[in-house]
Nucleic acid binder design. Sequence first.
DNA 1: GCTGGCTGACTGACCGGTTAGACTATCCGC
DNA 2: GCGGATAGTCTAACCGGTCAGTCAGCCAGC
Lengths: 204, 204
Amino acid sequence: MAEASLLPESSAPKVHLIRTTYALIGEKGVHRVALEEIAAKAEVSKGIILYYFKTKENLVLSTMEWVLSEVAERIRAALVRARTPEGKIRAMLNVIFASPESNRQFYLTYLELVAHASRSQRFGRLSATFRSIVNGLYAEVIRVGVEEGRFKVDRVDEAALSVRAIIDGLFLEWLQEDGWEKLHRRYRERTKAAVLTYLGAAAG
Amino acid sequence: MAEASLLPESSAPKVHLIRTTYALIGEKGVHRVALEEIAAKAEVSKGIILYYFKTKENLVLSTMEWVLSEVAERIRAALVRARTPEGKIRAMLNVIFASPESNRQFYLTYLELVAHASRSQRFGRLSATFRSIVNGLYAEVIRVGVEEGRFKVDRVDEAALSVRAIIDGLFLEWLQEDGWEKLHRRYRERTKAAVLTYLGAAAG
DNA sequence: GCTGGCTGACTGACCGGTTAGACTATCCGC
DNA sequence: GCGGATAGTCTAACCGGTCAGTCAGCCAGC
């Protein structure tokens, strides 16, 4: 599977605006944030946003591209560090479950992406690219794990998709918890257990 | 666990408006739909919506309440019809995976609920109520399954939550598929397999 | 003729996008 | 080194469209 890149280009002021936008989208949602507000928080004039991104849609799309590429990169780095297949799964999930606040921000943004993806070509492509990258990473870990006799699955691609579903499903559940801050750790461990169980790993 | 009811009251004209609203929310998303548009599709004047629901937020909330209670009811009915624990799981998933169009409509609405729930008390309560109802239904099936020696799980509540996560996670995945219409059946079977495997059911 | 369900023109706020131009930096010809 | 042309960055006032919610009053049935 060819791994398309997520990030096109990004100058310093663009990244500054993107970071600010990301914070506000996580906090209030795409349609509840006005360009005026982003500009104020970024301490620039509103005009500059349109100067750099032309439209609000472009800004939102760029922000999502940026976030997703950061996440993909962090997962990739975690996989390199760990040695055993189980270790890679654990390391990966430790990275994915970074902190309550950042997870909340990320998943709320991600949900908006999915919602947009179902109605817009541009967001649909972004979602597809991200999924293929992440599923590719998962598949690689699973493939090695199967080769080394640590995991037992029928089809690697199928298993990668299910692993993703377990992770996303539990995140979706966690998002809706009243005590999401306190429950973060518990959900992380729960997810590790569920994924490793699914992959048929030897206990431990 | 006390099962709170979802539906307060609903007159005939209200239900008519709610159905129309549901169709449009699934199609375009909450914030992309104007009251004017809902009124036009329902073939009533715009004023009547505000007359019955007072605010747009009330209308959206009522719509989600209505949809969720319908879904919960349908699941409940499916569980009554089937006999064996595995049969109940399959029947339940057949009902949940009703059709591509209705699932798409429902999950897009559900995602909006989750997004709203994280920022609004009122939507948060609705989401919590629905979750507790559905998780309760799942838990009951699992409990009986365990008693009859068909399922092997440590904690029933924990298992109910994971089952939910698997279902929601695969739906989230499915939503993002380009060929979601064609892939619906495959995802349904995949979900059945994943859930039954998770519950440690005897093969078959 | 009165009441209550119902209407739809209207209002005011909001917001994405435009535009005219200010300010600075770089470079060129003299 | 200097005047000025050019380009790039940035600002603030403004425009036009959209939309939730209001309100004055209509009208059918009692």
